[in-house]
Design a protein around this nucleic acid. Structure first.
Lengths: 339, 339
DNA sequence: GCGCGCATTTCCTGCGCTGTAGATCGAGCG
DNA sequence: CGCTCGATCTACAGCGCAGGAAATGCGCGC
């Protein structure tokens, strides 16, 4: 039977001070004399004391946790994002709880309503399906920062890149390489899903500016944004009487699935078909050929989101929602250009 | 100002019962009459009550959290594993806290000693650098389940596949396809790192059984198990006077990096060089060509590990450490065979 | 109609910590 | 040398919940 976990009072007794003084030492309260602090620290070491976090949380009202809710952690974009968020949160001594929503409205509602089976000081949510209207009447007041897509209405703080502009730039890049038959993979039927709606809008505008009409048979819907769906969608595009000579995929996984299919059936990329994606996951630099894609500044997204939470938690709960725009770059690789 | 979070006593007052009865309803205590339960549930809904988890933890001594400590979450193998662990934990109503160790002995020691900044009911640790000796005197009694590599000594429960046998099988597969100059990428200089040690042992045995000597110039060390390191290592192998005709990489990321390099410089896979990896991450089925690899039963690893924790938590803290072996399959894809 | 025994509910304590208020100490000053 | 004031420390309450003992209610048998 190992000795029970020591409590503050055990340390206090050993150090010959009050329990609160030990607490003060642990929490870096400034008005503690050097002498007292050394005494207490010796006792802490001797007993191998560790704070009981639930007790601290109960007494202080702060948990030290923030939630990061993303559609799915096995999508590399989100696991890479999670790593950045954890790093940013560490600067505030926060522990990150990762929650998967599957992108479903129900799960996202649970998150914004604080119905997760734990208590957190703040929430970073990568929104997928909830609309601003859905957020207006949330039944919880935990500070919330949204990431994902730039949305027109302003209900909560958010940090996002401009998908419309990014899609516009990427489509324009494809057109500039001489492509004329540009297809898209990644339409979702539910228009609440902002990602595909916004990226399609950028695609549409770029075609319009080039005087090209959107062809229905070049607009391929998918169930999920996974490699498998990209491969299947690519297969259907290749089966068209007049296949596209470029394909804009709404994320890298779709593009990598499409690429795999092209390589399998022997269609040369980029000679026969150019291919581009979004998100610049690590994998995209190592595909064959490497993938042209939109690289969001994911580190900045994570840091700004966490910083926004920190501001709200330090008392600023009234000021209007802030919106922070983050940069992106069009990373040109060999899936669109051979230069 | 939103109404303060309701407490049990608020619900109790509204329902006209005692606070403990409300607690009983929430916790599915069996001896509650239907009538009382309905009354309480109505009050719970009306007030939108949510349990205060820190308070529950303090009172009950259980936190409802388990920690999953892995080297790095941006390695797809670990993020895919995390998804399985979260699913398995959900069956026990546990929330998973993901911790990154970077594989360093210091960070792993902090994990096993319970020095993380939160309290958990149990720990699942994917061990990378700590040896059994390091684990023997841990200063914490939180139930611990190790995953990763089958180790010879028995300090804690663990769930793992047999890397020696897997490497043996995979090397044998390469030899059977007619390869004779089989190199390995992924040696780590520190022999405490079991993964490379064990996989190298399997490789060595397979060569020995085929009557082939290990060539020093075919054994390539790496700093990290990332794509980048695989690409660099492949470059050095190609620069040899007599390059290998097959390469066994100690994980898929190394193999995918190596593959990228081969595709870039125009070496045909598998014609000129066959390539195999470990872990069967999602990506490996979509590379060009798709990668032959070892597929561990990751879902089983997650489920068994969580189940072991559950047993320990339900009172069995004395019985000797249990070791559970999980299956793997050699997934043959086009990076080693054209059939 | 009364009592017994079990099912159901209540009462009350304490989990370990932090916030607040107030006690104590010590230095500087008149 | 006594007093004031700020720096430092202590005492104590209470955060919201679950456990256990005790109280109550209810059905059933005689």
């Amino acid at each position: 039977m190992p000795p029970a976990r020591p409590r503050l009072s055990d340390v206090a007794a050993l150090a010959g001070v009050s329990q609160k003084t030990v607490s003060n030492v642990i929490n870096d309260y400034p008005h503690v004399t050097e002498r007292t602090r050394l005494k207490v620290e010796a006792a802490l070491r001797e007993l191998n004391y560790r704070v009981n976090i639930p007790a601290r949380s109960l007494a202080s009202g702060r948990t030290g946790f923030i939630a990061l809710a993303v559609p799915s952690l096995d999508n590399p974009y989100f696991s890479e994002l999670a790593v950045h968020v954890m790093a940013a949160a560490a600067a505030y001594r926060w522990t990150v709880l990762i929650e998967q929503t599957g992108g479903s409205p129900d799960a996202e509602t649970l998150v914004v309503d604080g119905a997760m089976p734990y208590l957190v000081d703040g929430i970073v949510l990568h929104l997928r399906s909830l609309t601003p209207a859905d957020l207006r009447n949330r039944s919880d007041s935990t500070p919330l920062v949204l990431i994902g897509e730039k949305t027109p209405h302003h209900i909560a703080d958010y940090v996002a890149g401009d998908s419309v502009q990014a899609a516009y730039d990427l489509t324009t890049h494809l057109l500039r390489t001489g492509r004329t038959r540009v297809a898209v993979i990644g339409i979702e039927r539910d228009t609440r899903f902002a990602t595909s709606t916004l990226r399609f809008e950028g695609y549409r505008r770029a075609l319009a500016d080039a005087g090209i009409d959107v062809r229905d048979d070049y607009v391929v819907p998918v169930e999920r944004f996974q490699r498998e769906n990209g491969a299947i969608a690519m297969g259907s595009l290749l089966a068209l009487p007049e296949p596209p000579d470029a394909v804009l995929c709404f994320n890298d996984l779709l593009a990598l699935g499409a690429l795999s299919h092209l390589n399998t059936v022997g269609v040369a990329v980029p000679r026969d078909v150019a291919l581009a994606g979004f998100d610049d996951i690590d994998e995209s630099a190592y595909s064959s050929p490497p993938l042209t894609t939109i690289a969001w500044d994911t580190k900045a997204i994570a840091e700004r989101a966490v910083a926004l939470l920190a501001e709200r938690l330090s008392g600023d709960s009234d000021s209007p929602p802030r919106e922070i725009s983050v940069d992106y770059t069009v990373v040109q690789r060999q899936s669109t250009t051979l230069s």
